[in-house]
């Protein structure tokens, strides 16, 4: 059983642009680590590099000291599961079929009893058993995200990587999904590495947070140490007030007025109608 994921001086260039530079990090079993940072700071790229969807130099991603670039894709897919930001599917697959794909790392052609059993367990665990035979494309965004998480869990990974899993969901689904992730980590089922935008949700559910700025690690630590007014201003360029929420986690309130720095849009002198244009 793998315990530690180590990222060692990971750099990544995309079309000549340096996206990540000398990223060092470590994730321990049962930990929920969130990666935060502004748009374009390299959150998604970091996840993809860890999962070798994007190829990096040797000896940069290690699992219990072993270089993952020496593993084949299949072996790696038994250790890491990946949940992309959004999923689409051209063809009508059922939810069961999609989750079954998570068993791909273990099957050659025929399915074993164990494979369908695990899929059924995962559907039940995530609470989407009643959707099992629905078509994936007919589901709501929140339901789809749960299906994809169930698929990643069907891989039985030690590390679950998620790319902004909650950013397009309503608050109920956001909480449901983050609770599931937290519970997975807490029961030492797997470690969870999640890229997130919402600082307050990240602060509430993460054990540790990693803050990226322009492809470099700005700071890493518990939410209390990462989410300071100075850090946020330096990374995001906005003034905030950080208070303690009623649950005890740091809460970030941006300090800007509604019209902060935005000039009013010039009102048109007369209202154009289709007729007046013609």
């Amino acid at each position: 059983m793998a315990l530690n994921l180590t990222v060692n001086k990971l750099s990544f260039k995309y079309d000549g642009t340096q996206v990540l530079k000398d990223v060092d990090m470590e994730v321990k079993l049962g930990e929920m680590l969130s990666i935060v940072g502004p748009n374009g700071s390299g959150k998604s790229t970091l996840l993809k590099c860890i999962n070798r969807i994007l190829k990096t130099q040797q000896n940069t991603v290690l699992i219990d000291g072993e270089d993952t670039s020496k593993l084949n894709l299949k072996a790696l897919s038994r250790i890491m599961g990946y949940v992309p930001q959004s999923s689409t599917n051209t063809f009508p697959f059922t939810v069961f079929d999609i989750v079954l794909m998570g068993r791909k790392p273990y099957i050659h052609w025929s399915l074993s009893e164990r494979d369908t059993e695990i899929v059924a367990e995962m559907l039940d665990y995530i609470g989407i058993g009643d959707l099992a035979l629905r078509h994936f494309n007919e589901l709501s965004g929140g339901e789809q995200q749960k299906v994809i998480i169930a698929r990643a869990l069907a891989q039985q990974p030690q590390f679950l990587l998620l790319d902004e899993p909650t950013s397009s969901l309503d608050i109920k689904h956001q909480l449901e999904i983050l609770c599931i992730l937290k519970s997975l980590a807490k029961t030492k089922h797997c470690s969870v590495i999640v890229a997130m935008h919402d600082l307050n949700l990240a602060s509430r559910f993460s054990d540790r947070m990693l803050m990226l700025k322009k492809g470099c690690i700005f700071t890493v630590g518990t939410p209390d140490t990462v989410l300071t007014e100075e850090n946020i201003e330096s990374v995001y360029g906005i003034k905030t007030q950080v208070t303690n929420s009623i649950l005890g986690s740091p809460q970030v309130t941006p300090l800007i007025s509604e019209f902060n720095g935005i000039k009013p849009l010039k009102t048109p002198s007369k209202i154009e109608t289709i007729d007046s244009r013609a």
Partner: peptide, 16 residues
């Protein structure tokens, strides 16, 4: 099957 979910997902499921 796996590829029909996209190339990135296929890679993460161990399929080139």
């Amino acid at each position: 099957n796996v590829l029909s979910m996209g190339e990135e997902v296929a890679t993460s499921l161990g399929v080139s």
